[in-house]
Structure formats: C-alpha cells, structure tokens
Design a binder for these strands. Structure first.
Length: 427
RNA sequence: GGAGAGAUGGCCGAGCGGUUGAAGGCGCAGCACUGGAAAUGCUGUUUGGGGGAAACUUUAACGAGGGUUCGAAUCCCUCUCUCUCCGCCA
C-alpha cells in the first residue's frame, strides 16, 4: 500500500513514478476522496470536542449533587442529543469515504524502485550475471525432458495424480521422493547456515494475511479457498512468514530478522491454461523453501543483494547453470519495488526458466501489514522493509537436476552435495 | 461439538456508568546521590488521524464490530481468540 500522506503532498510526482509501470493506475480518485475525508474529519472532530465538553459538564454537576432532572441538566442533555444527531450523519459518511480510499489504495501497485530498469515487458529485463555452462549434448536427440526421464525411471507419476486429484499434480515414487526430501533438507541446512532461522508455519491462512502481503484483493482467483472457514491455501510461504509479525512494533535491535521456511505451495494457475502442462514446472501443488527478511529501511538494498546471493548459492552448490535477471518496470510484480529472477537452464527446452524470484517490497507490505519498528530509545515508529525470495522452488530444482544430470542410459547422476543426503551417486 | 471463565499499556495488575489514556507494581530511559557501582530518590515512559515551524492542541483507541446513554474500559448484542471441564478424533 502506498503512503496516503505522500500522495496528498505530491500527487503528480507519485503519479509519474507509478506510471513507469504502465497499466494506467490513477491516483486522482484517491486524492479527491482524501480531500473530502479531511474536510469531514475537521468538522466531526470539532463537534465531538463540544459533545465531550457537555458530557464532562454533566458529570461535574452530578458530582456536585445537582439533581439529575433539574432544568440545567436537562438542557445540557438536550444539547448533547443534538450534537449526537449531527455526528450520526457525519460519521457514517466519513467511514464510507475512508473505506473507499482504503479499497482503492489496496488496488494500487507499488512504486518501482528508482534503480529498477524501465521496460514494457519481460523482453526488457536486464541480465545481471550468468553462471555455469549450458548443457547441450552433441546428439540432442538423446536429450529428454525431465517428465519423460521421470516416467521412464518411475520416479514421477502424473497420471495417477490426476486420478486422485486433478491435472497439474504429481506423485513422487521411491528415489524421486527421496531426492525431493534430500533437496529440502539440503536447502534448509544451507540457508540456516547462512543465518536464516527456520520456521514451519501454517499452510492455511486467513484473508487478512493474504491482504497484508498483497495477494488479496487482486489475485483472489489465483488461490485455493476454503470458503466455509475464511481460510486459503498458501500460494507461497511468503504469506504466513511475512504475517508472523503483523500488527507489531519491533525494536530496531531485533532487526534484521531472517527466516527460511519449507512449505507446500498451492496455486490455481487460473490464467495459465495450456502453458507448461507437462512436467514439474507449473503444478497446483509444489514445495518451496522461502527466504523472508524484515530489515531496517537503510539496509534494504544491501539485504536484497545478499538475499539474491543466498538463493544463487543453492544453484551453484548443485552445479546448475543459471542467469540472474533484473526485472524491468513492465514485468515487476504488483507488490515489488525491485526484483531479481533467477533462471535455471533447462536443456530439454533449450532455455532458462524461473526458479526463484527475489523481491524487495520496501514498506509496501509493511504498510498493509502494519509492521513497524522503533529506533531503540527514540520516539515514533517507522515501517519495516520486507523482502523475500525462493531459495529455491523444489520441483523446478528437481526438473533441472533430472535434465542437467541425465546420463545417456537415462539414469540420473546425483549432484555431489546431495550424495550425503541420499546415500547414492546414481538415481 | 457441549458447559463455564476470561481478554485492560512492554509485562503484571486495579478499575465494572461520570472530568480514566486509564491506580499500583515491574521493566525501561534520563537526572540526582557515588571515586565507580548497588541501593535510594525524583522525572519521564502507547499508538493512529487532524491542526501547528515548534511548544502544543484536538480527536480516536481498554480483543474486534455494532448498540444503549448527555457520558462506556465499565451495561447489552454479535464475532474472534485464550483457559478449564466434558465429548469426539488424527
């Protein structure tokens, strides 16, 4: 959520920054409602002051043993009733306008960081680095996509999963299931060593949580919902973990807080019919290790760079070729101010595919989540900066391993760092 | 799921219709005392909105939302959460 004060103070500058996104978001209606709201508030507050005064006076008279039904008191009561009547017209109007402002604000995306590159679409994302050798075998006919290898070796099963659930679900068998478990352990071990505190949060969250991180109201159709209970299946651990400190005021000495979490993630993939229908790339349920940071605003740029490094470290340890892309304003998610995507090399497709998205939200989520901190010993509060990134998506990592480590005989070599976890070298 | 109890400031805890943003204690910060500390004493110590350069001022908030009243932390209703007992169940 954007800062209404900043919008009020400098609407044109804010609008110009917002327009770097395209999409035609207008602050104008908010500005107008805000003016109305302030006018009503001034009147209401004045009326309330006078009404409070009467209440006080009556109290004083009663203490002084003035008879409750004396003309003096009755006159005051009458006045009070009149104020109350006036207030009862103003109050609902003010609330209504406040509600309108709030719901409009909830729909406005974040202002892109000054350093985010301008651009219209993903075409204009900027490659910041590339690591490892793209695996292109001499005889590319031998090269199989991961789902074919997976089905051949029996470690992935999509058909039976469709029977028990729907399409876009997978069941892992035997060494496949073990490989996933190994990856989860490896990633968590690695990130805990890097300084993140592991948490294991609920996988169902309420609407308030989804609103705080920015999935609601705009992306309701992307999440699975348990309507009876006002609970939703989490689309990412970002939601429960970021909400951990919602509504709290932390002390600056507690910052930064770094968490990593392994959770299943659930997405309806409503807008992606026909895309990535095979394999592990786009499932309704997948596992992910998420990194979430709560930091002092002064350090958030630096913390962001470190977070990207922590995600990249996993790919490097697994010896998977990748590139790091900085998203342009046209491809930036609605909540992010700045974002790097890590893309892993998938030989069967002959291209890089997103495997981690590392975002800095600045105070956008914190404002929605009322997530503040106080500088030790000082007065007043500020909003925390929140950041997160995948470290990494487990299914996509499996796909990348299967494809990049496939042997001519359709077996899969196990990356060295995973061998201690699996107790084998070949799968 | 049934029955009961409860939710107050960073924490503990009083208040149960009248000038209470809220006694008291703890904690924390500053000052005094001290060679330094402990102990002691004094002072301060919630947040949001509006106005103001500031001092300050006004308004709101005692789990959340409604209601009664001139006036609500205190009374009524709904919801959420916590605890105890019973039932059910991984």
């Amino acid at each position: 959520m954007l800062d209404i004060k900043k919008i009020r103070e400098n609407p044109t500058a804010m609008q110009a920054q917002l327009d770097r996104r395209k999409g035609g978001f207008s602050l104008q209606p908010i500005v107008e409602l805000d003016i109305q709201q302030k006018a009503i508030e001034a009147t209401r507050s004045e009326l309330q002051a006078r009404s409070n005064e009467i209440g006080k006076t009556v109290g004083e008279k009663m203490q002084a043993k003035v008879a409750p039904n004396s003309p003096e008191i009755l006159a005051l009561k009458e006045q009070g009733t009149q104020f109350k009547q006036q207030l009862s017209e103003l109050e609902p109007r003010e609330k209504e306008i406040q509600q309108q402002i709030y719901s409009l604000l909830l729909q406005i995306p974040n202002i892109p960081s000054a350093s985010a590159p301008d651009g219209a679409s993903e075409e204009e994302n900027v490659e910041v680095r590339r690591w490892g050798d793209e695996y292109i075998p001499a005889n590319s006919a031998e090269l199989l996509p991961h789902w074919e290898i997976g089905e051949k070796t029996g470690i992935l099963n999509f058909e039976r999963s469709a029977k028990i659930a729907q399409s876009r679900f997978v069941t892992l068998f035997g060494a496949g299931a073990a490989l996933e478990r190994a990856l989860i352990s490896f990633m968590l071990d690695r990130q805990t060593k890097a300084g993140y505190t592991e948490v294991s949060p609920p996988a169902l969250v309420n609407s308030a949580s989804l609103t705080a991180t920015g999935q609601l109201p705009k992306f309701a159709e992307e999440s699975f919902r348990c309507a009876e209970d006002d609970l939703w299946l989490i689309p990412t651990a970002e939601v429960p973990v970021t909400n951990l400190y919602r509504g709290e005021i932390l002390d600056s000495s507690q910052l930064p807080i770094w968490h990593c979490a392994y959770t299943p993630c659930f997405r309806r993939e409503a807008g992606s019919a026909g895309r990535d229908t095979r394999g592990l790339i786009r499932l309704h349920q997948f596992n992910k290790i998420e990194l979430v940071k709560f930091v002092h605003p002064d350090t958030s740029e630096e913390e962001h760079q470190k977070l990207v490094k922590d995600a990249e470290a996993i790919l490097e340890a697994l010896q998977l070729p990748y590139r790091t892309m900085e998203l342009c304003t046209g491809d930036l998610g609605a909540n992010a101010a700045k974002c790097y995507d890590l893309e892993v090399w998938l030989p069967s497709a002959g291209k890089y595919r997103e495997i981690s998205s590392c975002s800095n939200f600045y105070d956008f989520q914190a404002r929605r989540a009322d997530l503040r901190f106080r500088e030790t010993g000082k007065k007043g509060t500020q909003f925390i900066h929140t950041l997160n990134g995948s470290g990494l998506a487990v299914g996509r990592t499996m796909a990348a391993i299967i494809e990049n480590y496939q042997q001519p005989d359709s077996t899969i070599q196990i990356p060295q760092v995973l061998q201690p976890y699996l107790g084998r070298e070949i799968l």
